[in-house]
Nucleic acid binder design. Structure first.
Lengths: 365, 365
DNA sequence: CCGACATACGTGAATTGGTTACATAAGTGG
DNA sequence: CCACTTATGTAACCAATTCACGTATGTCGG
């Protein structure tokens, strides 16, 4: 995994820069002495590292704390506003774009509705407009955007091209990463929506403490994303988790059956209120989900299964039968929880993906 | 994944030791100058590193090459005989033990038959005797054995305990790692057999060039192992890949149906010779395999699917229908190949697991 | 046998990065 | 205004590495 090269002396400085930067970002703002204690490095080393980082613009010196004993200490903070990233969801219902600083704090959201049968061109135009408006509206210069990531239904290959999308017309073959790179500055990435939502849950949601996670995205479409060792596992073609395509699983029409004539929310509501027929439909839907989820859970044996997407808002009405069916199917079923994020999960995961890229490539963390 | 600590100066030496040792092991034997060129380090550094390694006993100086121009260069080689590891399979048919040096060269095999309905105690005794005989017979002192690993059917948890085994009587609950540690010296590890076989294929077999691999172990029992990023993916409970337990998959009795009254080899042979009924049975078996394999392939989206275990010897008679059924079930089916190792795969994978442990913990690679 | 050549070894100085120890500076609190 | 607390600044030292250059030790051709 980690390529290991020979170490000349400057490798040490690189390592210590990473360690210091990580500690500083974790602390928010800190003095030299404190950073030294945390990292295990000497104060002098930390000082040298921070002066260098300040020079490069990644770190800012703050005015010293007042009212404390002793000589005032130099304080530093990571410059989260040194750059920005954009994460977006390009889905069947519309576009969600989020602008975040280098700490991952989202400073602007933007949404746009796009009908499910819009052409690829219309959808892409909406995405371009929405992402650009999100950045411009926040008063951030486009060249300040270091990376962009987009999540979308369907299979997205390693280069960021949509290699297969059944639910969106004309979507197969779209070079999403290539296009998004032209809308804004910086590197552009694209990935499957469920995968990104999984990433978001691991970052700040229900899956914070798990490293192997299966995420099941419910809604009009049913999909899944997999995290292994806390990292995205896209697979060779980007199709990892696309268990729904297996006929035996029946994810294709699971959602359709659930919402036959009423809305999903109504069905869940009715089931909660004791409607036997609604309860039966929810149970049947849960069983369908469980079959696919159990295949994933048996394959990956994750610590956690997160239920996300539109229908996860139903909560225990859906979670309880899902847990029950899953327990029947798995030797040792994983814990099942609802996702923390609603319809912001995919865009948030895209932010995280873009940040990962920035931290790896630019900050060298 | 990688924990990153602060770097004092000695970190550099550690890194360069690893790089040098890796290069040396790759070369077999090499001069200082050559190692310097390969690693990108200066000759002096390489020399200091190797002198240190020689002192610690990991490396040996060889007599210089003769008949070449210029001043004879100091030559070094990794001391593969500085320690040994044992890998073993404890299966339903019997025991396979392999003793290997630190280069992974197997210097002794040992086998013992144990009937499928032997008690756990009998099986363990056979394993103890076989592994000890393997080491003693090769003239290696038991304290020279740095690590032992064992593969077995069933689910093996992270501590090396068999948490569930259906096929072997009394096997559930056996603390395999704990016991194996007492038979021989060193650390002891235990894992699922299919997982280890997958590791062996990645190490020296059909899966050498793939990093994400699904391995399907055929035979009396059908199981699977998963490699992600070239590393074992055991999952939370060690049950990753145990898709066979899903009823819809039908791995439980797939093998039983194939061999109804004749032996598996006979069925394959007959199918090859144009026997329609045999071909139908093989096709049905392949379909059963493909259903489970496709679930794994869709979940993991691997680069390669390796078919191993007893029935993989059948070759194309089985591979061809498997590929066909897999292509029907998967969006983009992975390449399917037969395993390189027959009944030695599990023990060989155990050797690799033990070596991984040694390299990580002792050599610090 | 001997000189030319090729190649590797050996040594010392310079560089980079890091640590420890201790004197000094700059605040707070009575 | 003095004691106290805490951080900074400086100097000496160490560890690991590289570069430059001189030296050693073999082969090859006559």
């Amino acid at each position: 995994m980690t390529e290991l090269g020979p170490g000349d002396a400057s490798l040490l400085r690189k390592v210590n820069t990473k360690v210091t930067l990580r500690a500083l970002r974790h602390e928010g703002a800190a003095t030299l002495t404190r950073l030294g204690r945390i990292t295990g490095l000497s104060r002098q080393t930390v000082e040298a590292v921070l002066d260098e980082l300040a020079e490069r613009g990644y770190v800012r010196e703050l005015p010293p704390d007042e009212g404390v004993m002793g000589r005032p200490a130099r304080r530093f903070a990571f410059r989260a506003d040194a750059g920005y990233v954009v994460g977006m969801e390009i889905g069947g219902d519309g576009i969600v774009a989020a602008l975040a600083d280098l700490n991952g704090e989202v400073i602007a959201w933007r949404r746009a509705e796009v009908s499910g049968d819009a052409t690829a061109h219309e959808r892409l135009e909406a995405a371009r407009r929405t992402s650009q408006a999100c950045v411009d509206g926040a008063g951030v210069a486009r060249r300040q955007v270091w990376a962009v990531a987009a999540g979308t239904p369907g299979i997205v290959d390693r280069t960021g091209r949509v290699s297969l999308a059944i639910t969106l017309p004309g979507w197969t073959g779209v070079d999403l990463a290539g296009l998004a790179g032209r809308w804004l500055g910086g590197t552009a990435l694209a990935a499957n929506d469920a995968n990104l939502a999984a990433l978001a849950e691991h970052w700040r949601g229900s899956a914070r403490h798990a490293s192997d996670v299966v995420y099941v995205l419910t809604g009009h479409r049913t999909g899944a994303g997999i995290l292994i060792g806390g990292r995205l596992h896209p697979g060779r073609t980007g199709a990892a988790g696309e268990i729904g395509t297996l006929r035996q699983v029946g994810w294709e029409d699971a959602a359709r059956e659930l919402v036959k004539e009423s809305s999903a929310a109504e069905v869940f509501e009715a089931a909660l209120n004791g409607d036997r027929e609604a309860a039966r439909r929810v149970d049947h839907y849960a069983e369908r989900l469980a079959i696919g989820a159990s295949a994933l859970a048996l394959a990956v044996d994750p610590e956690l299964l997160v239920l996300g997407g539109g229908h996860s808002r139903a909560g225990d009405v859906l979670l309880e039968p899902l847990r029950r069916h899953l327990a029947e199917l798995c030797v040792s079923a994983p814990e099942v929880v609802a996702s923390t994020f609603g319809d912001e999960g995919v865009a948030l995961g895209a932010v995280r993906l873009a940040l990962d890229h920035v931290e790896r490539e630019i900050l060298g963390i």
